[in-house]
Write a protein that binds this DNA or RNA. Sequence first.
RNA 1: GCCUUGGUGGCGGAAUUGGUAGACGCGCUGGAUUCAAAAUCCAGUGAUCGCAAGAUCGUGUGGGUUCGAUUCCCACCCAAGGUACCA
Length: 940
Amino acid sequence: MKYHFNEIEAKWQKFWLENETFKAENESSKPKFYVLDMFPYPSGAGLHVGHPLGYIASDIYARYKRHKGYNVLHPQGYDSFGLPAEQYAIQTGQHPAKTTEENIKTYRRQLDQIGFSYDWSREVRTSDPEYYRWTQWIFIQLFESYYCNDADQARPISELVEVFNQEGNQSINAACDEDVPIFSEIQWKNWTDVEQEMVLAKYRLTYLSETEVNWCPELGTVLANDEIVNGVSERGGFPVVRKKMKQWSMRITAYAQRLLDGLEKIDWPQPLKDSQRNWIGRSEGAMVRFKVKNLNEEFQVFTTRPDTIFGVSFMTLAPEHELVEKITTPDQQQEVEDYVMATSKRSERDRMSDVKTISGVFTGAYAVHPFTGEDVPIWIGDYVLASYGTGAVMAVPCGDQRDYDFAKHFGLEIPNIFKDQDISESACEDKSAVIANSDFISGMDAATAIRRIIDEMEKRGIGQGKINYRLRDAVFSRQRYWGEPFPVYYDNGVPRIIDEKHLPLRLPEVEKYLPTSDGKPPLGNAKSWAWCTKTETVVSNDLIDQKSVFPIELNTMPGWAGSSWYFNRYMDARNRTSFTGKKALEYWRDVDLYIGGSEHATGHLLYSRFWQKFLYDRGLVPVDEYAKKLINQGMILGTSAFVYRLEGENTYVSQTLVGDQKVQPIHVDVSLVNASNELDVEAFKRNTLNKETRQARFVLDDGKYIVGREVEKMSKSKYNVVNPDDICKNYGADTLRLYEMFLGPLEQAKPWNTAGISGVHGFLKKLWKLYHNNEEGIFSVSDAEATTEELKTLHKTIKKVDEDIANFSFNTSVSSFMIAVNELTAMKCDKRAILEPLIVLISPYAPHIAEELWEKLGHSKSIASADFPVFEESYLIESTKEYPISFNGKMRFTLELSLDLSREEVEKIVLADERTVHQLGGRTAKKVIFVPGKIINVVG
RNA sequence: GCCUUGGUGGCGGAAUUGGUAGACGCGCUGGAUUCAAAAUCCAGUGAUCGCAAGAUCGUGUGGGUUCGAUUCCCACCCAAGGUACCA
C-alpha cells in the first residue's frame, strides 16, 4: 500500500476538528504548559513558506509536551486591525471588516492544511468588538491610574485626588509631566473641575498632550518611532515630518526601570534583551543648573560626567531650546536666527546622515560656572538634540570627542583636567584617567569624583544625581479608521471617559475611509459619533449641544493596543464579564514558551511587557512578566531568479553567456525556474503582461536559458515567494513540517530552496514502508521480541529527540529520525516493540502519518495523548569501543577494545599493534594519552 | 562608531564537558531494475598527489595555550541584525 499523504492528512485534520483533540481545559490535574505564537496580521497575500516556520516549531513543542503529560494551551488568533485592510478600503470602498474576514478565511485554510494542534475554540481577533471592548477597558484602567514612585507601582487616580484634597501635591512622588506646579489643598479645592482635570492629566498613565509627533502626510497618520525605518514610513516608504499635535500618550517612561529590571528574570534571546536595553537607554549622571550671566534665567544640563565640570569651557544648546531666543544678544541675533532657521529646515534624516559637518553659532550670552564663577560662553549647535536630556549640554572638550571637535572648529579653549593625559590630538574619554586642576576633586578617579561632586552639588543646591532614560512616552493615537475607538468624549475640550458598562464602543460606519476635507481623521466622516450623557448611547452628530451631547474622540488606537494583552485573553477567550477570568489567570499564569520574530523587539515586546506590569500593579494579573521564555525564529529568505536583458535591446541572455556585456537584471518568477536554474522560456513569455517581453529574443546556452540567483527577503515584488499550498499538495503537510525544520537551526535566517525537499519526502515514504514491509506492501508488525540492536537504535533516538527539543534543535532530530529509519530498515525490523514507540517519537513532527500508523497499530484514540517513550540508559551500554588511535593528535587508525581494560593493558595492546610500529617509524613513544571511552593518543 | 550574532565541502547544515571534522539531506558520478521513464535500490563523493597502499593540506586570517583546538585565549578581516551626534 502506497503512502497516500493527501488522503491521510485530510482524514486526520477532519478527525482533530470533529473530536476537538487539542481543546485545552482550564482545570486539570496535569501540570500546565502554555505555548504561544505571535499571532499573524491576516494580509491579503496569504501565508508564504516563511510564516509557518515558527508555528511548526511551537506546534512540535506543544505536541511533545502533551505526550509528556502536560495540559497544553496552544492557541491562535489574528491581529486583525491594521493599515493594509484600510488602504484597500480607501481604494475599493470595501469595508475593512469584510476584507479582514476574507483574509482570515484564507489564513485559516492555510493553517489547517499544515496540521497545527491549535485549540481554535479560543481564537481571538483584535478587531472583534467582543475583544476590543476589553482593549478599551484596559485603556480606561490606565486612564484611571497614576504611577506612585514611592510604592513603585500604578495606583488608582482616586487615591491621588484624596491626597490632593487633604494636602495638595507637596508630598507626592509620582511619575508625571515636568511642568506640574506645586499646589496646596486650598489651591486644589479652588480650582474648577476643568482645571483639576488638567492637573490630573499630568499624572494619568494615559493622557492627552500636545506632542511633537512623526506625521506621515501620505498615510495621513502619526507613526511611532519603530514604524519609521531610515526616515521613511515602514509601510509604503513615505516621507515623515515632525509636527505638533494633540495626542493620547502612554506613560511608559514610568516603567523604564522596571522594564529594564524585568529583563533579568526572563529567558529571552540576548540580542533581543540588548535592543530593549538600548531602546530604554538608561544613563546615570547628574542634572546641573547653570545661571545665565546678567539675566534672571537659568537652564539645566544632564551629564554622565559631572566630575569633569571643571573642564567646562562652553555650553551648547539645541537650536530648538526655549532659552535661545531670550538670551541671544542683539549683535548675534541675525546669525542665531539664520542658524535656527537653517536647522529647522533640515530633516531629521539629513541631520542624521551628515554627522561629520560641525556647525554652530555663539549666542553672545554667558553662563556662570557654578563652582568657579567664571564666564562660560553659550553656543547653539545642532549636534545637541532637543529630544534627549534637557536639550543642553555642558561642553567639556578635553573629555568628550564631539565637544573637542566643536571647540577645535571654532577655536574655543580646551582646558585639560586630566593628570598626565595628552589631549593635543583628541579628547580623553577614558574613565580611568585621574582628575586634575579641579579644586576639591583633583587626584580622584572618575568614580570617586562623581560621587563627591554630586554630594557637593546637592549641598550647594547646584544640581543633583539623576538617572536619565532615552525612552519616550508612547504616542497612542492614530488618525485611522480600522482600529479600536477610544471610549472618550470631549466635554468642552476636556476628555471624559465613557463608562465601562457601555463597552464596547463600536466603530461607526463611514462612507469614506479617508481623512475629512478639513483634515480630521476618518472617524470625522461618521454621521453618528456623539455621546449622549442622558441616554448613554451613541447619537447623531446633529444633536451635539456641549451640554448633554458631546463629540466622541476621532482618533483610534494604534496597532499595538490589541496585541499588548492578547496572550491573557487566550486563557479565557469567551469570558463576557471580564477581560480574563481570575481563575483562568491563576491557572495558566504566563506563557511558558513564546515564539516569534525578532522584528518586534522594541515594539510589541516592549509595549506588552509594559501593559502586563500595569495590569499586575492593579491586581488584574498574577505575574508581571508574561513570557518566561522567548525564541526568535529566523527569517526564511527567498532565492530570487534573474533574467538578463541586454541594455537597449529586447534580448535576454542566459546568465552563463553574460560575460562583459552590459545587462539589466530583471526578477523572474521562481515558479518558472527548475532546480537546475533553467528558465521555462515559453511559460515566461506566456505569463508576462508585457507585450514587448513576449516578442523578446532569448539567447540560450546549449539550448537552455540559465537564470541568475540571489538570496533576498521573501516578497511579492521580488517574485521569489513560495506558497505552502503547493508543497502541501505535492508533498504533503508532514513533508513541509519536516522540511522547514530540517532546513537549519530555528533561530538562524536561511534561504528557502525547494531542491532538498525530496529528501524528507523520501524519508516519510521509507518510514511508511517500514510498517508495510512485505512483498504485497500490506501493513504488518510482529509481536516478536526486539533485538538488542533494534532497542539500541530506538533508545539512542529517544535520547536525542528529548535533548533536541529541550535545545530547540529541531533540525538535528529530523536527521536522527532518518538515521533510525535507515538503521531499522537495514535490520528489517518489524517489531511492534520498536515501531510503536518510534511513531510516537516522530508524531510531534509529522502528526498525520503518525496518527495513521498509530491507528493501524490498533489504537482507537488519537496518538496526541500517547505517552512519550522513556529513555533507558541500559540499552546503550556497550562492552567495547572502536577507539581512534592518534599519533601526535592525528587520527591514523581505529582499534576495537574492551571497555574493561585497564590503562596499562590498553597501552600495551596499542604499542604492540603493528600499525603503531609503522606509524612511529623507529621512534619510541614518549607518552600514551588514554581517555577511557574517547580516544588514545600516542606522543612520539 | 557601538552592541549582538555568525563565518565549516558544490549547497542546507552536523560535531556532547577540548578528543575520529564534514552526521543527515540535497546535488553530482557510476551501477542495478525497466522496452523506456518515473519510482526504488546499491556504491562513491572535502582538496591535492598517487595504479594502490598511503601521504600532505583543510573549519574566515594571523598568532598562542595543549598530547590533542571548529571548540579556549589574543589581534585582525568579512557578513547579517539592532542602534546612534544619547551629552
